[in-house]
Computed example of a mutant assay.
Amino acid sequence: MSILGSPFCKIVREVLVELELPHIFRSCARGSPKRQILFEKTGHFQAPYIEDPNTGVQMFESAEIVEYLKATYASS
């Protein structure tokens, strides 16, 4: 997921760490071939992007990702 330094990606990374969720971070900095990989997979480039292998959920938009992560993985 994401562009290093993007404030939107940073928010998602912070929640992943806060919830102690194992994750793979893939930087898609300008000029990175990983941008094309994401484009081919989703039809456009936008970061952050997350795929949850536990649920099959794939989504963009940091606020929606944070809401999803907290609803799915936060302890009561």
Rank of each mutant, 00 (worst) to 15 (best):
G31F: 05
E51F: 07
Q58F: 07
G43C: 03
K41V: 02
L19F: 11
A47G: 04
A74M: 06
L69P: 10
C28M: 11
R13F: 01
F8A: 14
V57I: 08
Y68C: 04
L4M: 09
L38F: 07
A29Q: 05
F39Q: 07
I3G: 02
S76C: 11
S2P: 02
G5E: 05
M59F: 11
M1A: 15
P48Y: 10
Y73F: 15
D52I: 04
R13E: 15
M1S: 13
F25T: 01
K70V: 15
P33G: 04
F60G: 09
A63S: 15
S27W: 02
K10G: 14
V57A: 14
P53A: 09
G31E: 11
E18S: 10
E20T: 10
I50Y: 01
E20D: 06
P22C: 12
I11P: 00
P22E: 14
V66D: 05
R35M: 08
E64H: 15
A63P: 12
K41Y: 09
F8V: 12
Y49F: 15
I37T: 05
T42V: 12
Y49G: 00
I11K: 04
S27I: 09
K41S: 13
F25R: 00
P33K: 13
F45H: 04
C9Y: 01
L38E: 03
I24T: 12
